[in-house]
C-alpha cells in the first residue's frame, strides 16, 4: 500500500492496522525517516519536500511490487510526506510484515534504498545562508545498486 500525504503519521497505529487479523505474520519491521537538524555543517531551519504527483505514486507502487516479488511478504506500507517539515518531523514510513524476520528486514531496507533513488521527491533546505536544493548522494546510489547484484 502506498500513500503520499502532507499529514503526519502514527507508525505504531499503522503497523497494527496493517497486520490486524493476519496470523501468518511473525515479524514486522518499521522504518521511520526523520528530518535531521543539520546538513553537513549547516543548521537547517526547515525543509520543503516537492514531488511529482502521479509519477511518485507510480514509482512507489513499482518499488513495492518489486519487493513483494523478491521476498515472501504478508503486507507492506509506504507513506511519504511532502510539504514543509522541521527538524524532528517524520518524513517517511516503511513497514514490512512477513512470516519470518529475514524477509521483513531485507525487504524494508530494499524499499528505503530504492525509494531514495527512484521516487521523484526533492528536498529544499532552509538554512541561515538561504534556501538550497539538496543534491543527490552517491552513497544512496551505491546503496540501491547493491540490490541489483543479489
Amino acid at each position: 500500500m502506498i500513500r503520499v500525504q502532507r499529514e503526519d503519521f502514527d507508525a505504531q497505529a499503522e503497523a497494527r492496522a496493517l497486520v490486524a487479523g493476519n496470523h501468518r505474520v511473525g515479524g514486522v519491521v518499521t522504518f521511520v525517516g526523520l528530518v535531521r537538524a543539520n546538513a553537513g555543517d549547516a543548521a537547517i531551519d526547515a525543509m520543503t519536500l516537492e514531488h511529482y504527483s502521479g509519477m511518485t505514486e507510480r514509482e512507489l507502487a513499482k518499488i513495492e511490487a518489486e519487493a513483494r516479488a523478491r521476498w515472501p511478504l504478508e503486507a507492506t506500507l509506504v507513506v511519504h510526506r511532502y510539504g514543509r517539515l522541521v527538524p524532528g518531523d517524520q518524513i517517511v514510513l516503511v513497514i514490512t510484515a512477513a512470516a519470518h524476520r529475514h524477509a521483513a528486514f531485507a525487504a524494508n531496507e530494499f524499499l528505503v534504498d530504492w525509494l531514495k533513488t527512484k521516487a521523484p521527491f526533492w528536498k529544499l533546505e532552509a538554512t541561515a545562508q538561504g534556501d538550497q536544493w539538496v543534491e543527490a548522494r552517491a552513497a544512496d546510489d551505491q546503496a540501491a545498486k547493491r540490490w541489483v547484484a543479489e
Binding site: G33, V92, L115, K116, P120, W133, E135, A136
Partner: peptide, 10 residues
C-alpha cells in the same frame, strides 16, 4: 515530459 534533478526523497 517532466524534467527534474536527481531525486532526493526518503
Amino acid at each position: 515530459v517532466a524534467l527534474f534533478p536527481p531525486v532526493t526523497g526518503g
